[in-house]
């Protein structure tokens, strides 16, 4: 559930209409020809949270299938990917000498 909201960049309190609008905007930005994986992820996230019925089903039985643990974590990793932020040259130079805290 949380991963699906993260994939669409939404808060868990988002309404059905907000979810739909966000999904359409994202699909426009990531068409399947350009980024098939992202498109697939976005569509899957939308299908899981698009309405009350889908949300409850997903929450109840979303992860019952065996054998897809790594795929689920891969999906979570893609959903929680950090945003690209603007950085100047000096900041880059400083960052390059440091190591990433999560490494």
């Amino acid at each position: 559930m949380l991963a699906d909201y993260m994939m669409l960049g939404l808060e868990p309190t988002a309404t059905d209409e907000q979810i739909r609008r966000r999904y359409l905007a994202l699909v426009k930005n990531y068409p399947p020809e350009h980024d098939p994986q992202r498109f697939q992820d976005i569509t899957m996230a939308y299908e899981r949270i698009k309405n009350q019925h889908a949300r409850i089903i997903n929450r109840l039985f979303g992860y019952r299938t065996a054998g897809d643990v790594e795929a689920s974590f891969g999906y979570l990793a893609r959903a929680t990917q950090p945003k690209r932020q603007r950085a100047g040259l000096q900041a880059l130079l400083k960052s390059a000498t440091k190591s990433w805290p999560h490494q």
């Binding site: 990793a77 950090p82 945003k83 690209r84 950085a87 960052s95 390059a96």
Partner: peptide, 11 residues
């Protein structure tokens, strides 16, 4: 892994 380029944490 260039922290200056990214915002937010991830798995």
């Amino acid at each position: 892994h260039l922290s200056a380029l990214w915002q937010g944490s991830f798995v």
